[in-house]
Structures are given as structure tokens and as C-alpha cells.
Design a protein around this nucleic acid. Structure first.
Lengths: 193, 193
DNA sequence: AAATGTCCATACGCTCGCGTATTGAATCGT
DNA sequence: ACGATTCAATACGCGAGCGTATGGACATTT
């Protein structure tokens, strides 16, 4: 729910404020539900403000996506610079992602708006970077070049499907114990001992 | 592309015609793009016809989804009645799905419209049935009860992610040889020798 | 042949969301 | 203190889609 803070006289807004609000709205309601009047309401102003900062809804979407992409990029490089045992690092990455689904809400939302050409190319870029990262990790963990690439692709597909099934509650949720057991099973299956 | 057959005097339309056309439109453009005037155009009539057969767009969507669900259900029971070596059957199922992506376009489209409560429950039902089917197959292939359930969940997640990545061309496509090798890798990893 | 039923066309009203135009108010530089 | 700049409110036009009303064309029944 985007709650309507009654704009308690707060300071003025900047373009970045609109971009962050847009990402939040996308995470909660998806790209197609991103409308300027609704956003304005949730920010406690009217769209008169919006069209001062941005020429169009499309421009806001572009800016928000660009912001998000750079955020993701930063996380990825941070992750890549963690120097430990490759296998163990993969395991911990899996566990982390399995238990911190929140940050991936935007990704899941964008996944469902893959019609837009811009979002499509954006997702292609991000997916490729992440798969490359995974392939490198698997290779460092001892897999052959081709096998590592394939395993990375499979892992990423499982991640994408995992988001679809969980973030949007499509499938019956597991209790904590079963879920933990499931995550360990995934780790065993995809990473191995 | 939905081409506008100029309705070469053809016979009249039935509700089933609209439902099939709706599923086709959903497969190609997604649920949100399903509009009655567009559909009418693609069928060579006007919406005056539509509102004779259905009271609303929502009713058409419901009918189309019901039709699709029964189709999927039938495929599933057919698949379940094929009696051969469980492991081999799984392998062949994987290969078939990997090479016949077309029939899963509707599923992929619905996946992206999981906002709708009806679609959400529909997908939950279908996913559960398919995961149950996979779990049984894995169990017959020798896995323990819990392991089979987890492996089924992982497999289904990989399937869902696979659709997302391929049907909508988000990620760079592989050439035929690499793709075949990838599929075999998936089979080895998820089913094993 | 007339009446009834079935399927479709046309025209209209309504809502929602985008974008524009204009005016108002707050803040900053000088 | 005064104008300029920045941010916001209000009012309006516009197109897309849904749904309704009404009537016409064709087939079927009686």
C-alpha cells in the first residue's frame, strides 16, 4: 500500500525523490500501475509538480530504471570483490538471496513488464552480468568452462522462477523448517559438496 | 502480430471462437493488452458482436482461462498415464519442453499478469498440480519423499525461469549446439544418471 | 408470409490517465 | 526589498477502452 502522507509541509521535492518513489511503486504494484497522478498523491503533491521535473511519464520510467540499474551494478561489483572460498561464497550467496527477498521486488516487477523494449534490454544486460558472475564463480569452484556456463544459466533460471513463485505468492508457502530444508537441497543440487 | 482477416463473409462466431482468439491474443501480447475492440478487429467484426456473447471483458477472460485450464489439465493426465521407466520419462519430458516452447506461451503470459486474483489462484492450482506430478516422478525415480518434493520445486522454478528468459527473448539466445548441450546439462544436474 | 430469434453495426456516454496552460507561492540572489 | 527562479495547484483538452442502446440483416419457426 502506498500511503498518502499528507505532505506535512515537508521540503520541496527533487527529481531523485520522484525516481525513488517510482521504484517503490513499481516494486509494489508493477510497471503498468505506475501513473503520475497516483505517484503525486502518494507524495502529497499534484502532478503540476511532476511535470516540472520530468517531461513525461516515460522520462520518469527511464530515469528510475537507470537509477535502479546502477544500484544493481554496484551490488554486483561489491559481491565480486569478496575474496573467500568460491564454493562457500556461492552457498552463502544462495542463502542470502533465499532469505532476503525484499530487495528483489523491483526485479520481479520488471520481469513482468518485459514487453517494453527498454526494460527488455535492461533485463538482458542485468541477467547477462549476473550469469557471467555465476559462471565465473562456478569455474572457480572447479567446473569446466562449458559446464560452468550451463550451470550458471540453470541457476539463474531457478532464481527467476523462484522470484515468480515466491514474491507473488502464487504457490503455497512452506513453513520455515521446510523452506530451509528446500534451500539446502537447492544448494546441494546446484553447487554440490 | 494479430492480422486483420477481412472477414471474408465467413460463418457467424460463437463464444468459443472468442475464447480461442482471446487465448491467442494473450499468448502474443499479454493479458493487459487483451481488449475487446482489438479482438473484434482481429476477428473481422465489431464489438457489437462481442457483447452479444459476453457481458463483459472480465467474463471473456474468465471463460478463456477456464478453457485453458482444462486444456492443461488434460495434457497433464495424459502425461501421467504414460507408463515407462520413470527416470527416462523425466528426461524425455525435459527435452520435449525445452524444444516445444510454443505451447507454453500462454503460461508465460499469465505469469506476467499474476496481479489478478483469479490468475493468481489459477496459476497456483496449475503449478501445484505440476509440482505434485514432478514430485511423484522423482519419487518413482528413487528419491526420498522430502528430497523429491524439493527437487520438484527446484525443477519447476527452473522451468518458470526458463520460460521468462526464453519466450521473451530477454537473454542472448544460444545456438543450437550450445542449447542442446545446456538442456543435457540440466537433465544431468536435476535428474542425474 | 409473418413473427421470432440470432448475430452484428453504429453511435453514444463514461472513466482514467497523459499532457498542457496558466496562475500562485516560496525561496534565492543582489 | 525586489525581481528571478523554482516548485506546486488548478483547470482543461485529448485519446483509449469499456459498456449501453438501438436498429438492421439473416435464418428459423409457425
Amino acid at each position: 500500500m502506498v500511503r498518502d502522507l499528507p505532505r506535512a509541509d515537508r521540503s520541496r521535492l527533487s527529481a531523485a525523490d520522484w525516481e525513488r518513489a517510482a521504484l517503490e511503486a513499481i516494486a509494489e504494484q508493477g510497471v503498468s500501475a505506475l501513473n503520475v497522478e497516483g505517484l503525486a498523491r502518494s507524495l502529497g503533491v499534484t502532478k503540476g509538480s511532476f511535470y516540472w521535473h520530468f517531461p513525461s511519464r516515460e522520462a520518469l520510467l527511464d530515469a528510475a530504471l537507470k537509477r535502479w540499474e546502477s544500484d544493481v551494478e554496484r551490488e554486483l561489483t561489491t559481491e565480486a570483490e569478496t575474496p573467500t572460498d568460491p564454493r562457500q561464497r556461492l552457498r552463502e550467496l544462495f542463502r542470502r538471496i533465499a532469505h532476503e527477498v525484499q530487495p528483489h521486488r523491483v526485479y520481479a516487477a520488471l520481469l513482468r513488464a518485459i514487453d517494453h523494449a527498454k526494460i527488455q534490454s535492461l533485463m538482458a544486460r542485468i541477467s547477462q552480468r549476473r550469469m557471467d558472475f555465476l559462471a565465473l564463480a562456478y569455474r572457480q569452484a572447479g567446473l569446466e568452462r562449458a559446464a560452468a556456463a550451463h550451470r550458471a544459466r540453470l541457476t539463474y533460471a531457478a532464481y527467476v522462477g523462484f522470484l515468480q513463485m515466491n514474491v507473488h505468492l502464487g504457490v503455497s508457502r512452506l513453513n520455515q523448517a521446510d523452506y530451509d530444508a528446500y534451500v539446502e537441497h537447492v544448494i546441494d543440487t546446484l553447487i554440490g559438496g
